[in-house]
Write a protein that binds this DNA or RNA. Structure first.
Lengths: 147, 147
DNA sequence: ATGCACTTTCCCGTCGTGGCAAGGTCAAGC
DNA sequence: GCTTGACCTTGCCACGACGGGAAAGTGCAT
């Protein structure tokens, strides 16, 4: 099976398959006499696993860990669960961050008449009366989770 | 005022001030005889506007538009509001996407016993019966970068 | 005169992906 | 044969929004 077939079968572009090989996420594919990469169903299965993981938002590092566990018959499901829950927690943090930004901006927009005149609470909000601390973040950054 | 002072006063790092100048988001700063950049309060005000906009997740393109409107005395608040609401809508879309990923993964994690045995619904979910569909859009929005 | 804090420009790395270029390989049609 | 077209190869550049760091210049205090 050539790379294009594997791409269609797995939902991962040929470009990305080569990239994953380059960063060691998938083993180096065998070669046909033409020097074209050669794939079998197991390879496609692995690629599909990667694609599903990406679809769930996992970063490559975690996918690497998941792949190790996947092919480990002696894994503990607790290890898998820990990775999954850590990722969920990260996403929840990001969601909370975006939620806050969206809410603040939505509130500003609600206060704005949206007519032909220049007066605008959104602009005033962006100018910020927040002139105080130079280093204080107005939102919670992804690093500082409130546990 | 040198760039370090402007950075502290605005909350934008010196590095970023130079970057914003390079991409034309702020005008080229004047220079002292030493060739050091020279800033005044108006420059700091503008930088603070940019920082607040970034804190609300606006991408640079939209900030560019906001800056134009900010310095336009004949703006309509409706233009500002339109930009703000478009951005809110974008964020809501991203939030919904992440919400969905987090929920799916959370459901898989709930179904996983998380014990010492290898059997794991998360892994099974990642293997996925979902064959070669097209890839979903990138999950990580530019607004959620660590800095 | 030496040290230190600040500045300058420039280049590289992030992360996951798309795009393009220049060339190799193979089957089909003329 | 010879061309066309579809596939493959490697490789480099780009994105957004920065951070890091090198190598060199500037300014002030000791």
């Amino acid at each position: 099976m050539q790379i294009g077939q594997a791409a269609k079968a797995s939902g991962v572009t040929a470009k990305m398959i080569r990239h994953y090989e380059a960063i060691g996420l998938v083993p180096s594919a065998g070669r046909q006499p033409s020097n074209y990469r050669d794939y079998d169903d197991a390879d496609v299965h692995r690629l599909r696993f990667i694609r599903r993981s990406r679809d769930l938002g996992f970063p490559m590092d975690r996918i690497r860990d998941l792949l190790k566990l996947w092919s480990d018959r002696h894994r503990s499901s607790s290890e898998v669960k820990a990775i999954a829950l850590a990722h969920v927690a990260e996403m929840e943090t990001r969601i909370a961050h975006m939620r806050e930004m969206a809410d603040v901006l939505h509130a500003l927009a609600d206060a704005c008449e949206g007519n032909g005149r220049p007066e605008c609470p959104i602009i005033r909000g962006l100018e910020g009366s927040d002139a105080g601390g130079p280093r204080m973040p107005a939102y919670l950054p992804p690093g500082s989770v409130n546990h």
